[in-house]
Design a protein around this nucleic acid. Structure first.
Lengths: 244, 244
DNA sequence: CGATGAACTCAACGCTAGATGAAATCATGC
DNA sequence: GCATGATTTCATCTAGCGTTGAGTTCATCG
């Protein structure tokens, strides 16, 4: 054991290897469960070095989330061609991103959003602004319906991501992309342009509400919890933190 | 401060209140983020008492997951009426459970399954055994297709749970049950009995594979990670642990 | 060659977590 | 009315976390 501390002689790409290790760990474990110490070990490096390069754990996470995909740039590409086969194109686009290395960021974000507050807010805002404000209004005739349509699409996409990439439930987890597109595309299509039957449903609900108020009261125990603050995480550690 | 330690004078229902606090906390935070200390505080009790009654944190979680719903008993009820409107009935059934207090267990399980290994296995095995082995075979003509159909249904259900109960994305989060049934039911219906277009898709995939092998190679960087062991968590703490 | 700064590690602080064993208090049957 | 056992808390252990500041090694520019 001649020398252990101090600057490394050869390779200058340590920063990148830390980032890679961080991406993998965050994707596997989510924000909370991933540990800086684990990331450091996985990169063959001291934990302090991670802080030296990236600052706080949150800042490291956000750096990892800098996905190489600019929605404003690629989304028009998906929208091109009108509304007839938008469902299949959406699913195909979704799969191309999530099956690529960039998909790890998605898995990390999804994993983290489930048990971490500001991460959930991140994801929620992404969905609302990107989907509801930019995509859906251009496709449907009745603008009042588009928020509902957007969250329905989001539900199918989130479920696909959960089953295929997080839970890894077979056979969807390793099905060929075109099989998934053929299976799910038409359903997404219906959410975007189809008849949702909401008019009849709301009427039926109002009728039912008059009769079975009991059941609704029983179902209302659902709580409005999960308000655990953790407000916007102020900046810390300027040093070498931001770059790239 | 006359007496602080020792047996409590009045109420003998401490065990139940601990369980309730545990259910709420697990549902709000997931398995990892929930702390025994937090549960104990929320129940107005010492952390050691939680261990005294329920043993390990894992055992406590499993006790909380003892949902009051026996699938073998209620599922035939959903299946009654044949395959014509099974989609809507499935969604309605799903909502009735998840909107009820028992749904907290579902939220907890889903939240936990995302970042915890053995919890994910729990959920995965539940879906596979219950859905694929018991429900789907009775509805479709081609048994070879039923696993795919099951995971498609699971994807829509998981997505619905994520958007409505975990991320709380509006307007799906607070839409009336019958609106959700009308909107999602038909899509589930297609997954169960409709044409998935898999034959054409697989053919197209094989044709495309011959041409664009490049793109597939690029997409193959997806890693086969998430193998972090944590094998079956052996039993501990027999004492007063199991009961009920 | 010598100085400056970047890359890198050590050792430690403060905190929270799950878990444990012993002690204190109460209810109750004999 | 006292012994037994169930209930409940205290104090503590170990382990891991994020973070920090000081110190060590190396590259590079003058």
């Amino acid at each position: 054991m001649a020398r252990r501390t101090g600057r490394r002689p050869g390779n200058p790409d340590t920063r990148e290897s830390i980032l890679t290790a961080a991406r993998e760990t965050f994707a596997e474990r989510g924000f909370e469960a991933a540990s800086i110490r684990g990331i450091a070990t996985s990169a063959g490096v001291d934990p302090a070095l991670v802080h030296h390069y990236f600052g706080t754990k949150e800042q490291l996470f956000k750096t990892c989330m800098n996905f190489p995909i600019d929605p404003a740039e690629v989304l028009p590409q998906v929208l091109a061609g009108g509304a007839e086969e938008i469902g299949e194109r959406l699913v195909r686009f979704f799969l191309r991103i999530w099956d690529s290395p960039a998909g790890a960021a998605g898995v990390a974000l999804l994993r983290s959003a489930v048990s971490n507050d500001w991460t959930a807010r991140l994801l929620r805002e992404f969905v609302t602004t990107q989907m509801i404000r930019h995509v859906l209004p251009k496709l449907t005739t009745e603008p009042a319906e588009s928020p509902l349509r957007a969250s329905l699409v989001a539900s199918q996409m989130a479920g696909l991501a959960m089953v295929r990439y997080v839970l890894k439930l077979e056979p969807l987890a390793s099905a060929a992309p075109e099989v998934v597109v053929a299976a799910i595309g038409p359903n997404v299509q219906r959410y975007v342009t189809g008849d949702l039957g909401t008019a009849a449903a709301t009427a039926a609900t109002e009728k039912a509400a008059a009769i079975a108020t009991t059941e609704k009261a029983a179902a209302a125990t659902g709580k409005t919890a999960a308000t655990a603050a953790t407000g916007a995480p102020g900046e810390k550690r300027e040093k070498t933190a931001q770059r790239e």
